[in-house]
């Protein structure tokens, strides 16, 4: 899921500046599990905005904020409120926030959160990054553990000289990703694989902005001719 964290309230207040009335949009998916876009988060932000002399006209929690079409449909029911609001504050990730930007082309939209990473929830409300969406997965070569993400240097061919007693030099409280890969490969009888040089990554697979369409592309050449 996408991990988000509430922005510092002072920063949010400076972003919203002189606007006075707001419609708040949460998200029932990731942002709810992160506590940044659920009912409690909306109630808390509503209180804080009131304390700052602002008005919250209404709020809602769409099912999946980043599903732009669905969110647009859900928000239609709130038209009278969204029309009244000076601006929209979105309490989800950056993707959900930009759905709102698309849905409200004439209104200012502000993010209430910072979007941090694609995370695994390892315990309740504890999130760790395991995958950094690099576009070309290599964990089939590294015992299922991603060195691009788990090593601060993203090294592909073994530990650096900074590895100390099995731990990472950059974050000494975590185990070196390559020691983890080594131990796992050994355990599953796959140590030979660790001897193969992994070539430099193809970063073009990570080019931004990424997009994907599962629809077959229509061949428009004939249509044009007609």
């Amino acid at each position: 899921m996408i991990i988000s964290k509430k922005k510092d309230h002072e920063e949010l207040l400076s972003l919203i500046g002189n606007y006075n009335s707001f419609f708040l949009i949460g998200c029932s998916e990731c942002a709810s599990l992160c506590g940044t876009g659920n009912d409690e988060a909306i109630a808390e932000l509503t209180e804080k905005l009131k304390a700052a002399g602002k008005t919250v006209v209404s709020a809602t929690i769409p099912k999946t904020g980043c599903q732009t079409l669905g969110t647009k449909t859900e928000l239609k029911k709130f038209k009278e409120f969204t029309d009244k609001a000076d601006a929209i504050i979105v309490m989800s990730c950056g993707a959900g926030t930009q759905s709102a930007v698309e849905i409200f082309p004439d209104k200012p939209v502000f993010p209430a959160n910072n979007t941090l990473f694609l995370g695994n929830m390892t315990r309740f409300q504890v999130f760790d990054e395991r995958c950094s969406l690099c576009g070309e997965c290599i964990i089939g070569l590294t015992g299922g553990i991603c060195p691009v993400t788990n090593c601060p240097k993203g090294l592909l061919n073994g530990p650096c000289g900074g590895m100390s007693d099995g731990n990472c030099e950059v974050s000494p409280d975590i185990k070196c990703a390559w020691v983890r890969i080594y131990e796992r490969q050994k355990k599953i009888g796959n140590l030979e694989q660790m001897k193969e040089i992994i070539p430099a990554k193809n970063w073009s697979a990570n080019q931004r902005p990424a997009n994907l369409s599962l629809k077959e592309k229509k061949d428009k050449t004939n249509e044009v001719k007609k």
Binding site: P152, K153, G154, L155, L156, N157, G158, C160, I197, P199, A200, K201, W203
Partner: peptide
């Protein structure tokens, strides 16, 4: 930090 490639590469 860059690390586009590393020591082996």
């Amino acid at each position: 930090p860059v690390y586009d490639v590393e020591s082996v590469q």
